[in-house]
Design a protein around this nucleic acid. Structure first.
Lengths: 128, 128
DNA sequence: GCGATAATTCAACAAGCGTTGAACTATTGG
DNA sequence: CCAATAGTTCAACGCTTGTTGAATTATCGC
């Protein structure tokens, strides 16, 4: 990212981070990051009941982070995979947001009276 | 990251993502990403009451993502800044977790009977 | 048609969480 | 000492969310 680009909208980013902010969902995604899985494979690997897996996968689906396909010959089998495009975009957005190159020196618009119009004093760390 | 490194523990990552998974907290962090701020500057910029800002900053502090210092000459002023080390580590962990290079072909341990011991059929997309 | 299978959805519940308003703490200056 | 200031903490409330158990849906093979 260049310094002229704006970080993504907080609402959009927060929505996707919220979908990720659960250990179980991260575990599911971790499995999918290494390859396509069906509900029962995820259940075996993570010792999770099918209904809970379905619920979590629904959250991830709604967030656009996973994709779903049925087996071509036996539709009872449903396979889940990561949505590579969405992951790629999310990583880019995340990296842009937390690009440490964005940090600028402090420009006070508020502070003790003697600080107005003057360069900021050197801060010292005091225990809170 | 090399392909031999493990992704971070889901609990650790989820805890930090949970701290980020709120639009208001992302807005606060966005301000801090561009420079050190005090509570009233954040409040002016985001039109948020001081107590709510304190609450959100506490969440971010607990997650280790921001740092806090008091003004050297007037301790009423408290300045917040991003914890660069923690951000750097989080970005690295996030990128490692969602490294698309991790994706492997599917190795079925479960599926329709005719699929055992055979290469996976080509999947077709059916509406769910 | 029916039993088995894979998966999804629903309902209820408890826990978690963001917000509001009030109270509190610490500091400064007159 | 007291008023003003910056900031933090507390309590209550309504909303959100993860989990459990049951019910449902769709599919397959006999």
């Amino acid at each position: 990212m260049t310094e002229n680009e704006l970080p993504p909208a907080p609402e959009t980013l927060a929505k996707q981070l919220k979908a990720l902010a659960d250990p179980k969902r991260l575990r599911i995604l971790n499995l999918l990051m290494s390859g396509v899985q069906c509900n029962c494979e995820i259940g075996d690997a993570l010792n999770m009941p099918a209904n809970l897996i379905s619920h979590h996968l629904r959250v991830l689906r709604k967030a656009g982070l996973v994709q779903v396909e049925r087996d071509a010959l036996d539709a009872r089998w449903v396979y889940y995979s990561v949505n590579e495009e969405a992951i790629r975009a999310l990583v880019a957005a995340f990296d842009a947001f937390f690009d440490l190159g964005r940090i600028q020196p402090r420009h006070p618009t508020c502070g003790p009276k003697r600080m107005k119009g003057k360069p900021p004093k050197k801060l010292i760390v005091k225990p809170l």
